[in-house]
């Protein structure tokens, strides 16, 4: 059959995805932006175009502190998941020789993800508690005399849970890019007299950058959008932007929640835009 108008056909082919994105991504975001300018009474919201929500948001020192905390969590979690994720991926890709073994070990990494992340998170609580397993063990070993208070309901606990939850999101893309590295490049490096460390720094890391970047985007967006981990692991004592939004929703202040969400969305998009300046991930896709 002769194609008469390739142009129209192209549009038709793109249409289903475009409709899905329009209906389930663009429209809700537009709605959130609109509502963020609305006003609210104690138990209703009314259409308006006012900047009160943003004014309050930017006028409150709490907002800056909470955004600061959100960045802090994102940065520390990113650094730790990167270190662990890179090491695990490196081991899987270059130290394990047989493909079967690689696949088997990779599946082992995913086992914790067979349960809900809430359960994985909450299971830390009895472990880290004042009379929990960690403290009891340390006391019985004679390492400490008094239970460590900072193990649970602290920044430590929050970051521990984040790292536990999200390291796999770093492992997978890095492992994926590492597997695509042509082994002959490594041999060439060795033949030219590079040490193992030099190979790592000058060959492997530059070639793994797209994977690192994809993992980074996963981890940063997940941590910045989280609220439940912070709430449970800090015993409600710490806040990030997600909790600010969830508190507003609980109090029926939807416009204020929408305004915070818009600011958070912009922040995350800016962060991702900056990240993409460093690495061209299209090469990867």
């Amino acid at each position: 059959m002769q194609l008469k108008n390739r142009h129209i056909l192209g549009w038709l082919e793109a249409a289903p995805l475009a409709m899905v994105l329009l209906g389930f991504l663009i429209a809700p975001i537009v709605m959130i932006v609109i509502v963020s300018f609305w006003g609210a009474t104690e138990f209703s919201i009314y259409p308006a175009f006012e900047f009160d929500n943003y004014e309050f948001l930017f006028g409150s020192p709490v907002t800056y502190r909470v955004f600061g905390a959100t960045f802090k969590y994102a940065f520390i979690t990113w650094a730790l998941t990167l270190a662990i994720g890179f090491t695990v991926a490196y081991f899987l890709a270059f130290h394990v020789r047989s493909l079967t073994m690689q696949i088997a070990l990779f599946l082992v990494c995913t086992i914790p993800f067979w349960t809900s992340n809430i359960i994985r998170m909450i299971s830390w609580i009895p472990f880290l508690g004042r009379n929990g397993i960690a403290n009891q063990t340390l006391i019985s070993w004679g390492v400490i005399d008094e239970p460590l208070e900072w193990l649970l309901y602290s920044d430590f606990a929050v970051i521990l849970a984040f790292v536990h939850l999200y390291t796999l999101f770093m492992v997978v893309p890095i492992f994926n890019t590492m597997m695509r590295i042509d082994k002959s490049l490594l041999e060439a490096a060795r033949d030219n007299g590079a040490s193992g460390f030099q190979t790592l720094v000058h060959v492997i890391i530059p070639l793994t950058k797209p994977g690192i970047m994809i993992g980074t985007i996963f981890v940063v967006t997940l941590v910045m959008g989280d609220f439940i981990t912070v709430r449970f692991m800090s015993g409600s004592q710490r806040a990030n932007v997600g909790r600010l939004i969830s508190n507003d929703i609980g109090l029926l202040q939807y416009p204020s929640a929408a305004a915070t969400a818009v600011v958070l969305l912009c922040t995350v998009l800016i962060v991702i835009a900056i990240l993409l300046r460093f690495v061209n991930i299209r090469k990867e896709l």
Partner: peptide, 8 residues
Amino acid sequence: RKWNEFIA
């Protein structure tokens, strides 16, 4: 609002 600040 003050309560939210207290939590944060």
